[in-house]
Nucleic acid binder design. Structure first.
Length: 328
DNA sequence: AATCGCATCAACCGCGCTGTC
DNA sequence: TGACAGCGCGGTTGATGCGAT
């Protein structure tokens, strides 16, 4: 039973996306919203597979993505969520609304794993023993339950000192989600590390392009698009054709990983506001809908409350988007 | 200045899940 | 109920940048 390729291999372009392609994709999604990826290549004329379009959108073009500069807090959260959930990056990413699963996965593989292996971590997060096949979810969840007390204890230890620096970001989350128009402002924007006022940068009502650009994060305005294309053309000329990754090529890949300088896609609202069009209304990330953002305090109570956490979070609705059903 | 090796990250691939007919 | 299509996820790869030699 060989599954046919998701798309016709012939004529399907691969490799790095060009700014032009990004532009086409963004424009299309702005108009139609994300989803129905199958139709995207056909309707946009992009010579890309639907999966590639979806990936490009969710991992790079989607508004509200913060890139680089993982804060210590995010780092610890990732470590402990990984200890709890294993390599279920999408689930982990749902607790870090500004981060993509791909980003978290990469960060884990390149930084955290090594850090922990070299003993640089707090030792609390052991490698998740196993990532059980999804076909046996019930089984692995039972195993997870077996480990959960250990992991919870470890997390408690790790989070305790964090209480002091507690989460401007996450605290804001707890309040910001109630604010109208916070819909796209997942996570409230900036991390403690990025001092720019990127908060709510992806909120349609609160992300004026000018403000956002002034603050640092890239906004997909006509001006920036033009700059982007110029930059791309320059690079193309310099490099002899390979366009590389827009934005990422210019800034994200500078090695500094400075999110505040990351160009489009970087930390930012991707809007077309300056073009006179409506700002994005679509946000595909809402794995955890804004109203269901889980503030750290909720995570803590979930993790720390031995008996009632599942009921608590479930009744609060905060874990609705979590991939587990918590049958126990 | 050139070369090599390593680190990083965007993108691809294959598989499983879910919804629809 | 089974087949099919579409989507999402996790693992892996390849291109690129950067530091060391």
């Amino acid at each position: 039973m060989v599954r046919p390729p998701c798309c016709d291999k012939e004529g399907v372009k691969k490799g790095p996306w060009t700014p032009e392609e990004d532009l086409v994709l963004v424009s299309y999604i702005q108009e139609h919203g994300p989803g129905n990826w199958r139709a995207v290549p056909a309707k946009t004329g992009l010579m890309r597979c639907s999966k590639s379009c979806r990936l490009r959108w969710t991992n790079y073009l989607r508004p509200g993505i913060k890139r680089g500069n993982f804060t210590e807090q995010e780092e610890k959260l990732i470590i402990h969520l990984q200890a709890l959930l294993g390599n279920r990056w999408a689930a982990i990413a749902s607790y870090l609304p500004e981060r993509t699963d791909n980003d978290i996965k990469n960060y884990w593989n390149t930084h955290l794993k090594r850090k922990l292996q070299s003993g640089g971590g707090d030792g609390a997060a052991k490698p998740p023993a196993h990532r059980p096949p999804s076909s046996s979810k019930g089984q692995w969840e039972r195993r997870l339950q077996t480990d959960i007390n250990l992991a919870r204890r470890a997390l408690r230890e790790a989070l305790t000192p964090l209480d002091d620096l507690k989460p401007p970001q996450l605290q804001r989350d707890a309040t910001a989600v109630d604010a109208p128009g916070a819909g796209l402002g997942v996570g409230g924007g900036d991390s403690p590390a990025s001092s720019s006022s990127g908060a709510s940068q992806c909120s349609p009502s609160s992300a004026p392009a000018a403000a956002a650009t002034a603050a640092g994060p890239y906004v997909l305005t006509t001006e920036n698009i033009s700059r982007m294309l110029d930059g791309w053309a320059g690079r193309k000329a310099a490099r002899g054709g390979s366009p590389g990754t827009p934005g990422g090529a210019e800034s994200a890949s500078t090695g500094s990983s400075d999110a505040s300088e990351v160009s489009y896609g970087g930390g930012a609202a991707v809007t077309l506001a300056a073009a006179g069009g409506p700002v994005f209304e679509f946000e595909t990330k809402p794995t955890v809908p804004p109203a269901q953002q889980m503030p750290l305090s909720a995570i803590e109570s979930w993790l720390f409350d031995d008996d009632s956490h599942f009921h608590h979070v479930q009744s609060a609705g905060v874990l609705d988007a979590a991939p587990m059903d918590y049958p126990f």
